[in-house]
Amino acid sequence: MDNSGLIAVIPAYNEENTVGAVIAEVQRTCSGPAEVRPAEVRPVEVVVVDDGSADSTAETAAAAGATVLRLPVNLGYGAALRLGFRYAAGRQWDCALVLDADGQHIATDIPSLVAACHSGADLVLGSRFHPDCAVAYPVSRIRRAAIRVVSRVLRHRRGVALTDPTSGFWAMSRPCVELFSRQLPAGYLDNLLGLSIAARAGLAIAEVPVTMAPRQGGQPSTQGARLVFHYLRTLLAISIGGRS
């Protein structure tokens, strides 16, 4: 393990209210003096991918000290993530993170994700539904059902058993990020497809329990009928492959 540090990719769409605090939180957890920060973490480059926000997300993120990549129009979460991976593939680091800009993912969980990554996993997911979680995370019934279906498909088609495959809180090794930056199709819509690609490539996937905060701002990216449509598209993509 070298000391080149961490990179945290944060896709953001109209998150001016929370993105600054999230960046500060990540920096506080990771970049404190070596004596106080957890042994697993290292100085961090925070990369905010501004997915065509109409508000001051990009300015806020830049002011908070993040590297900002600005997509000229809103392309969706998956596209923002894909850009983040492409950028990260060309940088120096020894563990890459993905987390949400809405404050849902808590920076104090970063050390346990990074530790799992350093102990050999290529892709580590922070799970809200892990048996070791202290409290069950509340989700809508449609989402819960969709997560269950997706878990089953992933187990049967790809042989990975996960409690929270839709989690957007990830830690990754370099081979994993390089695989994503090469193989995620343009039009990539969800982390599930990435998960499926990683499983197919035979990368080691692990889960660690995390506590997720109820979202502090913004709207869930998809709700109701759109959520169902979104999951159907994702299921098609992960079960048949090809483009999303």
């Binding site: 990549l69 000229p72 492409r86």
Partner: peptide, 20 residues
């Protein structure tokens, strides 16, 4: 249309990286 969408996305990514 699918192909155009993908090309546009790749173009956007390049724009974002170049701007950076």
């Amino acid at each position: 249309l699918s192909r155009s969408e993908q090309r546009i996305q790749i173009l956007m990514e390049e724009v974002a990286l170049l701007r950076r």
